[in-house]
């Protein structure tokens, strides 16, 4: 290898000493922060940004990662979950990347964390003011099922024209008596833009309404961010005479006996058990009772 190349490699993020704080260069962080500020000012609005290629694949949390790395400070305490689980493979990978490039302490306790990056869940603990919740977003536009074309959906958002989405919901209801939306249930934010809450279950959707934390959403592949500031109205799109239907669980958690938490299926000794999807919350409850 030539000396010039060696120097080139040494200046890149190859060794730990070669990392910038939080991996991204400052101009990239500034770009993301600007987009996020705009997002906070216009709740639920999709803000395009120059999404960088990250050291994780597109579609594997590269958007959430950019939001986290652009906002994290040395004083933060980090928690990363996937499906509610701190030990899920990709969550571990992301946490290691963020922790080693920032040096911030990590935790599994949602109450202690100041910054939580999540995929598909909101922690079972109620979050508080000052906490930041970063969502990884695969499909950023709630109108995607209306049109695959960003040029079309951009115009619909700009004109506040959600007729097609309401019609979609109406047809669902007329045909089946209920909405067919499973996760990613579309919500209206601050009585303005319609937004996807990311693929969280319907159970978590009402938990975004008037929530005290700042919620930031990052879609890396689709190069967009959006936000829900603290204490903002987040209302699922439902007809006046229909109730919003979260997932229902008839059982309580097999491990911690919790009632009303979001449950996941697990096979223990060949038997199907319903257990809390928030593993850290579940473990804490068990530690207390024991």
């Amino acid at each position: 290898m030539t000396t010039a190349l060696r120097e080139l490699l040494d200046t890149g993020p190859r060794t730990r000493s070669g990392y910038a704080f939080a991996y991204m260069d400052e101009s990239a962080k500034r770009e993301v922060r600007r987009a996020l500020l705009k997002g906070v000012c216009i709740p639920g609005h999709l803000v395009p940004f120059a999404s960088r290629e990250m050291p994780v694949a597109r579609g594997w949390g590269s958007g959430g990662l950019q939001v986290t790395l652009a906002t994290i400070t040395p004083k933060d305490v980090l928690k990363v979950i996937d499906q509610g689980d701190d030990q899920s493979m990709n969550a571990v990978g992301l946490r290691e990347l963020i922790a080693t490039t920032t040096g911030v302490p990590t935790t599994t306790d949602a109450r202690r964390a100041t910054l939580i990056q999540t995929r598909h869940r909101i922690p079972q603990d109620e979050l508080d003011e000052g906490q930041v919740l970063v969502f990884q977003v695969p499909v950023s536009d709630p109108l995607r099922r209306i049109s695959a074309r960003p040029s079309v959906t951009r115009r619909l958002h700009a004109e506040g024209d959600y007729t097609a989405l309401w019609l979609y919901l109406y047809e669902d209801t007329a045909r089946m008596g209920r909405s067919s939306f499973t996760h990613s249930y579309p919500v209206r934010v601050d009585d303005g833009y319609v937004m996807t809450p990311s693929p969280i279950p319907r159970y978590d959707v009402p938990r975004l309404h008037q929530a005290p934390q700042l919620s930031l959403f990052g879609a890396g592949r689709e190069a967009a961010v959006f936000a829900v500031p603290p204490y903002t109205d987040v209302v699922p799109l439902v007809f006046e005479d229909r109730a919003f239907e979260p997932e229902r669980f008839t059982e309580c958690c097999w491990r911690c006996d919790a009632e009303g938490s979001f449950l996941d299926t697990e096979f223990v000794d060949g038997r199907q058990r319903m257990v809390c999807s928030d593993t850290a919350w579940c473990a804490r409850r068990r530690a207390v009772t024991e």
Partner: peptide, 12 residues
Amino acid sequence: LPHHVTFTSVLD
């Protein structure tokens, strides 16, 4: 990647 939470929503 795991999708069991979203899949729970689907099954529901």
